[in-house]
Design a protein around this nucleic acid. Structure first.
Lengths: 155, 155
DNA sequence: CGCTAATCTGACGTTGACGTGAAGATCAGC
DNA sequence: GCTGATCTTCACGTCAACGTCAGATTAGCG
């Protein structure tokens, strides 16, 4: 699409700092299949990352945090992302249109599941917020009445 | 306020079932100070609970789930609840108005903190939802164009 | 080339939040 | 007063999600 400017590849420590985690976590995510295992390495086996990896990792951490899912559930949630990434690489006619359609269709399913989770959470949070504000109003009222009474008694 | 009908006290197993957890968890929460440790017991040391305990436990589990906090953070979050419960017991003039005011004021602070957390989460979830719907639109568009092309090629 | 910081691969340690018995005591219905 | 379900207190086990340390290797700058 654009920006084939060959960005400088990042090393694991930089990636970790960028997303606010540690190299160990990045390796762990690779180990359990949340990040691609066969990615780029230097001649000496040091891992190399691009900005899309950073983006992916950020989204993983965000989903985990906001949806409160385990890494296992997380993997299932973003499963289709991998297929789409693979697809991007070989958009050059290697895959059949049929296959491409399948992948896109599956992506839609996974996105729907994510959206469903997000909205369920939003609903629950909204209810919680209602309850908390109601409670706060009650406490505020109590406090106000208490102070009025004290003021009255001092007269 | 009302309903001093002396509800039948519940035992730990019933409470656990009511809130969808296990007796072990209830004991654990008591152990770490999330539930009062010196509560009612039968002659034979079996724990007894009332409906307000059930309510409290429900809210604890909900906060934990929705806010994604540790039990330690959770304890800090609901700290004021305990003070208010203690207050309820001695609302009968034992405590001074000054003390009561302090407790109510503290409650407000804790409620504000909870609300802050809730709203922060809501914001993040809203952003996440935006991104997911945008993504979905893109995939939908891609899929549509792909199908149109295939249909055209078949002609 | 040499040096230091960063990274590599294991492998074992840790922490939170419970699960899972064991061994006995208690509760409630008959 | 017996009996089966439920409860008690330890105490050890477990699982996910990393932390941490060791020992060797590599990156890359002067």
């Amino acid at each position: 699409m654009s920006a084939a400017v060959a960005e400088r590849p990042l090393r694991i420590g930089e990636v970790a700092r960028l997303v606010g985690t540690t190299p160990r976590t990045v390796r762990y995510y690779e180990e359990i299949g949340l990040l691609p295992a066969g990615a780029a390495r230097t001649a000496g086996q040091h891992r190399l990352y691009g900005s899309e990896d950073v983006h992916r990792l950020r989204e993983l951490l965000r989903l985990k945090e906001l949806l409160g899912v385990t890494l296992d559930e997380l993997r299932q949630l973003v499963e289709a992302e991998d297929a789409r990434a693979a697809l991007r690489d070989e958009w050059g006619r290697t895959e059949s249109d049929r296959r491409r359609g399948e992948i896109l269709f599956e992506s839609l399913g996974h996105l729907a599941r994510q959206l469903d989770l997000v909205r369920r959470r939003q609903g629950e949070l909204a209810r919680l917020e209602q309850e908390l504000t109601a409670k706060r109003r009650r406490v505020q009222g109590k406090l106000r009445r208490l102070r009025e009474r004290v003021a009255a008694e001092e007269a």
